[in-house]
């Protein structure tokens, strides 16, 4: 599926922002919520449903 933000040429990140902890996109340096279409509360990471934190 085509990303509408890519088509529109606007600044955004394809990772999921995890509260203020980090982003799933390894190279993401700017953790502003306004450039992340996908945001999840850090507390939800404890729930096994959405995200897993693993040692790389």
């Amino acid at each position: 599926m085509t990303c509408v933000d890519c088509v529109a040429g606007v600044e955004h990140c394809h990772g999921t922002l995890v509260g203020s902890e980090g982003c799933t996109e390894p190279g993401c340096e700017d953790l502003s919520a306004d450039r992340h279409p996908l945001v999840i509360e850090a507390a939800e990471v404890d729930s096994p449903r959405h995200l897993v934190a693993t040692a790389a």
Partner: peptide, 12 residues
């Protein structure tokens, strides 16, 4: 360790 923690989006 020197192991980085990374978040991954997975299908549960």
């Amino acid at each position: 360790t020197s192991d980085r923690i990374r978040y991954k989006r997975v299908n549960e």
